[in-house]
Structures are given as structure tokens and as C-alpha cells.
Design a protein around this nucleic acid. Structure first.
Lengths: 230, 230
DNA sequence: CGACTCCTTGACAGCGTTCAACAGTAGTGG
DNA sequence: CCACTACTGTTGAACGCTGTCAAGGAGTCG
């Protein structure tokens, strides 16, 4: 099973051969990635499945001139790496030191998807969730203002972190900006806006990653909703 | 089989019970939709699969205040309507008078995806292609300029229409704008830009939907490419 | 003919970017 | 212990790309 480590140069193997419920029995191994190291690159073969145990991951595309678009953040519990069939579309990096469980794709799905039906349904469920998220994000990127984008981002993180009283964001302003299609300055200014309006409170000093949502319903009102049919 | 017509109020049934290759044998019926009529709405159950025979379709999300984001255009040959598992995420409308073949989902996949393995692979292929397209579109919406967006749009249409000498776009400037996250004025100005630069020629008078790509390689150079790893 | 849609163009405004300076924190090494 | 550096984040000022508002041309339909 050293092939695992070979295929993941930035990972350090901790334990292995878990039996997690994803379809049927499968062999999972635990890896740790240091902050800012790559988990897999764009166009690499997508032959593993990843689940975050601890930490956070960004999936992004980098243009030749340095522009970056983050397509998704993955948090503890999230499954990723199987978004696009044969090859990865986005590069994935650990945002902070991150523990990931990894399984070979064929150990879960058989060769391709031929053999294992129940896990194929799980696969479809994960992909469908990803697709849904990306489609929502299309609307955000194409048709929302900076304020709406940041409010939507905060509500998304709040939901996915199960509405903690103090939300501790793993990502930097640059990550947030690249997720929302903005610059770090605009993100920073919009945070200040929200603070002036009394909707959020920024805590912790440099990196200001601790955020308290003071008025979730007002924040939610800033997020555009889809049209209700007449 | 009148349930078909019941479920598709805007459609007129023409012929039915084709035998098309999508996985194994399935019963397809041909429907026609008038320009600007809805094929299926957001949040409706996704229990049919659609393939365009003639015409064009837009899939979009409409916000409460009228802002619209188009996620994809579908052209002859394209399969759509199975993007998101149980319920549709986007509304689909015929852009022009459009002929569509429709099959019940379970007549293709069995109840859910349990029974038919080979068509499950087809399903995954279609969904994967959709996901790939949407992820590309994320980068376009979040990180590209108006000029880059329009160039990318023209190259995409050129490829999908098999590089005709004269490209006849089915969609209006508004559709293009809502696809690219721009306004119609910016789209129009950017078309004029490209024309002044000698890269395209706009033909046909009001609706100016006939476009000749005069310099595909220069046009392609306007489209940002993903970063090549060092 | 009038009414309508689609598209283009001009003038102007504004949202978000760019450029720049600076504060707070952490890590390093003399 | 204290520079020194590096990194993250905030804020100000000016710019500019794109949006907004407005007018008008071209084509279609009844």
C-alpha cells in the first residue's frame, strides 16, 4: 500500500484501513497535509476519494497570469475529489494543517462503477451535491454585489459550521476574495460595512478570523432569493 | 402515455417511441416547444431526460428582482435535465422553436439507478460533462473581463456548432449577457470592439445573429488559459 | 402606418479595482 | 531583549471598467 504515499507526495501517513460507511466496506487511510500544500493537482487522474477529518481545503483554478478562482471550500465531514470523472478539474490545497481520509476509488466503486450499485448511488449523491453548490455559485458570481456575496458566504459558512456562537474561519481574506470573485480590499471593506451596520463583529487581532454573526436574519435578508413563480 | 403531455403543458406531441442509444433501449417521445416557453421549471421533479433535436434551450436562475443568470445553453444533440438528481435547479426555456426528445427517467435508469448499470455510466458521463462546463464557467464569471468572456463565449459556440463559416446564434444579446454576467450594452460594445479589431464580422440586420469569426487564433488568445505548473 | 423587439451608441455615474501606506502579530536571529 | 522581516488585514485616494440612463436605427408584424 505504499502506492498511497507515492501518489501523495505532500501527505504523511498516520493510520490506515478504516472501515467507513460509503457504499460498502472500503479501506480508508488517514493522511495529514501541512498548510498550503497540494492534495491533488488539476488534470491529475481522479482515482482517490477524500474525506476531511480535521482542517479545511480549497479547490481552485489558477490562470496563467495569477488570477485564481476558488470553486469550493471543504470542511470536516465533506467528501471531495470525485467531482469530475476521470481527471480533476480543480487543484486542491490544505488551507490549514488538515487531516484527510483517503480511499482508492476502485476499492469503493469497483473498476469504474460497474460492480457496486449501492455505492454508485452514494457517488451520484455526492456529485449532485457538488453540482448544486456550483450552480448556486454561478448566480452569486454572475449576478450579486459585493455585499450580497459576502453575506451569502457568511451564511453558508455559518450553516456548514452549524451556527457556532463564534465562527472561526480557516481561510484568509484572499481565499474569501477568490471564492467570491472580488479583491481582498473589497472583502475587507465589506466586512467593515457589515460591522458598521451591526450585523457582524470581527474578533481576534490579525488574522481577524473570528466572526460573530450578530443578526442572522438581517444578514439572510441581504442574500438574494430565487424568484417565486406567479 | 398522456401523462407525458400532462406533465409538459407547453409541449406538443409529434411522434413517439423512438429507440435511441442511451444506455439500453428506452422509449423517447418527440415534443415541440414554442420560442420562450418553459420546458421545465426550477424545483420541479427531474423525472425526465431531454435531448435536443432542433433548436436551442437556455437553463437559468431568476432572482426575485429580475436578475437572471444563465448557466448553460443546450444545442442540437445535447442531453439535459438530469443535472441535479431529484429536482431541477435551473429553469429551462426554448430560445427558439425547439424540438426535443423526452424519455421518462425510470424507463432509462430503472427505479432510480438500481437496475441498469450501463446507462448509469452514461448518466455519470453526462453529469460529469455538465459539472465540467459549470466549473469552467465559474472561472469565467469570477475572474474574466468582458472581452475575455465574450471571446470565450464565441469560441465555445464555434466549437459546439462545429466551426461553421457563418455562425448563426439562436440567442439574443440579453441571453448572452445573462450567460456572461454582463449587461446587454456591454455585450454590444464588446462585439463592436471585436469587430473594430478585425476579429469578427457581424452580419444580418437586426437581430444581428450572424457572426463570422475572422481570426480564430487571435480570438483564442484572448481567452485566459489555466496556469501551467512549474 | 404605428407598435414592438432587438441592437447599437453616447454620456455619465458608480462599484469595485488599483496603488499605496500603515497597523497588528509572529517568527528569527544577533 | 530588541531590531528586522514577513504576513495578514484595514483604510484612503484615484482610476477605470462596467452599469445605468437615454436616444435612435433597423427590422417585423398586424
Amino acid at each position: 500500500m505504499l502506492e498511497f504515499v507515492d501518489g501523495h507526495p505532500n501527505a504523511s501517513l498516520e493510520r490506515r484501513d478504516f472501515d467507513v460507511s460509503f457504499g460498502e466496506k472500503a479501506f480508508w487511510s488517514e493522511f495529514k497535509y501541512q498548510r498550503d500544500t497540494e492534495i491533488f493537482g488539476e488534470a491529475e487522474p481522479a482515482d482517490h476519494v477524500y474525506q476531511i477529518k480535521l482542517g479545511a481545503v480549497r479547490a481552485f483554478d489558477l490562470l496563467a497570469d495569477g488570477r485564481r478562482q476558488i470553486g469550493a471550500f471543504y470542511l470536516p465531514g465533506d467528501i471531495f475529489g470525485i467531482e469530475t470523472g476521470d481527471a480533476h478539474r480543480f487543484t486542491s490545497e490544505a488551507i490549514v494543517n488538515t487531516t484527510v481520509w483517503i480511499a482508492k476509488r476502485r476499492s469503493i466503486f469497483g473498476e469504474g462503477v460497474e460492480e457496486n450499485i449501492s455505492s454508485t448511488k452514494d457517488l451520484l449523491k455526492v456529485i449532485t451535491r457538488n453540482l448544486h453548490h456550483v450552480e448556486n455559485h454561478l448566480v452569486l458570481l454572475g449576478r450579486q454585489t459585493a455585499l450580497e456575496k459576502l453575506a451569502a458566504f457568511l451564511m453558508e459558512m455559518d450553516r456548514r459550521l452549524q451556527s457556532p456562537s463564534v465562527m472561526i474561519l480557516p481561510m484568509t481574506r484572499r481565499d474569501i476574495a477568490d471564492y467570491l470573485g472580488l479583491t481582498i480590499e473589497t472583502v475587507s471593506r465589506t466586512f467593515s460595512d457589515l460591522q458598521r451596520k451591526g450585523l457582524v463583529s470581527l474578533r481576534g487581532g490579525q488574522p481577524r478570523r473570528e466572526i460573530v454573526l450578530l443578526h442572522r436574519s438581517k444578514l439572510a435578508h441581504l442574500v438574494p432569493v430565487q424568484h417565486e413563480k406567479v
